Amino acid sequence: MSLENLARTLEHSGDYRVLRRLQSHWLEGMPEGRRVRKGLFLDLETTGLDPALDEIIEIGMVPFAFTLEGRLLGVLPAFSRLREPSVPVPARVTELTGLTQEQLAGHSIAPEDVADFAADASLVIAHNAAFDRPFIEAFCPAFAQKPWACSMADVPWENAGFEGRKLGYLATQAGFFFEGHRATDDCLASLALLGYGGFPEGRTALSYLLDRARAVWVRVWATQAPFESKDALKARGYRWNDGMDGRPKAWFIDLPPEKREEEEAFLRDEIYRRDVDLTVSEIKATDRFTSRV
């Protein structure tokens, strides 16, 4: 009996769930078609969490073909490079990624090589784009002109019965495992999840993400919010900006347009507890997840 048949026998018993190793669908070339587009999934490994202080040590980019309806057609050859930082790699980063100072020694990445590889992508996606985009924009300014989306934030995973949004959790619930915490491996796992079609009406995760990417979002600023409201704002998904980048020193949140009225009511009723003029701006896909606006 083959291993796959053994796995199916275990699953059919009702007492077991079997995880299969991720098998990506590689394409020999970019498919043609009027409604076919090329996207780019990006993942970074860094020395820390602050793009103003920390450095990229690995860049993984996986191009992929998709239809405008949200069907993933397959993946294309990847870009995978290491980079030696100017400071020692923290022990916690080595524990997480397996990357050591010795492995990175002598490696470099040219920003122009990154820009050339990404040039024909119509959309860039990351799993936590709010982390990856500021790092890659600082390293390669060409990414500032690209539309962006986030496979963590832009997909209603709960609609398909998923719990949580961390990549490893999502993969396990989708029935596969992969070698995590290396950039290209994380890209391939994320793309497999975007191809998942177990949503209502047979929709894919990618179709939801594309809907979000096409919408003009709004950024709502909770300027001069009472200090004691910080926990409530943070729990609701607001992020803090310290004002050092020229933007307001305040909590803010990015939302799809249909959530604007509800959010304004929340701020007036629960945070300020009075009628106030709120600062709200439009955020297009080219400006989402960036610290420039």
Rank of each mutant, 00 (worst) to 15 (best):
P156M: 05
L19A: 12
F252T: 01
A110N: 11
S13P: 06
V218Q: 04
E258K: 09
T290I: 09
E262V: 00
D287P: 02
R8H: 02
P85W: 06
G237F: 05
T279A: 14
Q145C: 02
G198D: 02
L104Q: 02
L76F: 08
E69Q: 14
S190C: 14
Y272H: 08
G243Y: 09
L49E: 12
D54N: 11
R274M: 13
L255E: 01
F289Q: 03
T279N: 09
R92N: 10
F143S: 11
T204H: 01
R214Q: 13
A119Y: 10
G98M: 05
Q101H: 06
Q224P: 01
H12T: 00
E282W: 08
L68I: 13
L72D: 08
T100N: 05
L191V: 12
A149K: 07
L27Y: 15
K259S: 10
F177H: 13
L206C: 09
A192R: 11
R21I: 10
E264V: 07
R20A: 14
L255M: 10
N5P: 03
T223H: 05
G168E: 04
L3F: 07
M244I: 13
E258P: 04
F117E: 05
V280S: 13
T46H: 06
P63N: 14
V89Y: 00
A153K: 04
D211I: 09
I59R: 05
T67R: 09
E263A: 06
L267A: 06
Y196C: 01
G237N: 06
E261A: 14
S86N: 00
R260G: 04
P256A: 03
D242V: 10
N5L: 09
R236A: 12
I109M: 12
I253Y: 02
M152A: 12
K284T: 15
I283D: 09
D275V: 12
D185S: 15
I283S: 09
I109Q: 10
E262Y: 07
K230I: 06
A250R: 03
A265F: 08
G246F: 10
D277P: 08
W221G: 01
E95N: 00
G243C: 12
A130H: 02
M61T: 06
A189F: 15
G60W: 13
F162V: 02
G70S: 05
I59D: 04
G70Y: 02
Y196I: 11
W148D: 01
G197C: 03
W157E: 05
L42M: 12
D186Y: 14
W240R: 05
L22I: 13
Y169L: 11
G48A: 11
N5W: 00
A142K: 09
P88A: 00
L42E: 04
F117K: 03
W148K: 01
C140N: 11
N159Q: 10
M1S: 13
Q224K: 15
A149R: 11
Y208C: 03
E264M: 15
D269H: 14
Q145G: 11
G106P: 08
L123M: 10
